[in-house]
């Protein structure tokens, strides 16, 4: 079956006008019902993504600032604790030294006081001994001499005896 050769370049007014009318209607319908919704949806999403990125960036900046602040505080706390430890150590050393000095002074005082007491006791003992010895000597002498010795004689004789004793002891 052989048809007459068709010419695709043949112009037809009706499709030409229909094209303009149909496309105009389509463009109007799409421009009214479709593209505003699609473009708004895309813009909303874009704004959402940009907003989320900006919020994340702000949160990151805030977190970095907080971290810096925390690190600074931590550093300050560490320095403070080191200083307190140093001061405590120094205080302990000072108190130990003070305690040692005070103990030594107390010990020295006690030793001195003991020595004084010893000396006082020695002197008391010596005086008692002297008194007792003199009385004893007078008693013995009076017995021997059978006579009373006056107080002045007694004193003289005691002093002579003591002098003699001191000379022997030295």
């Amino acid at each position: 079956m052989m048809l007459a050769s068709a010419n695709p370049l043949e112009f037809n007014l009706l499709p030409f006008i229909t094209t303009m009318v149909v496309f105009g209607t389509v463009a109007a319908a799409l421009g009214f019902f479709v593209w505003p919704k699609i473009l708004k949806g895309l813009d909303d999403r874009n704004a959402k993504i940009l907003g989320e990125i900006a919020a994340a960036e702000a949160a990151r900046t805030a977190a970095a600032a907080k971290q810096k602040e925390f690190e600074q505080k931590l550093q300050e706390a560490m320095e403070e604790s080191s200083r307190m430890i140093r001061e405590a150590k120094a205080e302990a050393v000072r108190m130990g030294e003070e305690l040692r000095v005070r103990s030594e002074a107390e010990l020295a005082e006690r030793a001195r006081r003991a020595q004084d007491e010893i000396e006082s006791a020695r002197r008391t003992a010596v005086a008692e001994l002297e008194s007792h010895a003199a009385t004893l000597a007078v008693s013995i002498a009076s017995r021997i001499l059978k006579r009373e010795i006056s107080a002045s004689d007694q004193k003289r004789m005691v002093e002579e005896s003591l002098a003699g004793m001191q000379g022997k002891s030295s």
Binding site: V22, F23, T25, V26, A29, L30, F33, V34, W35, K37, I38, K40, G41, L42, D44, R45
Partner: peptide, 17 residues
């Protein structure tokens, strides 16, 4: 044209916020 408008309207509904 009718099919296109219907399809794109469906697409617009699924893309819209």
């Amino acid at each position: 044209a009718i099919v296109l408008v219907v399809l794109l309207r469906f697409a617009a509904r699924s893309i819209a916020t």
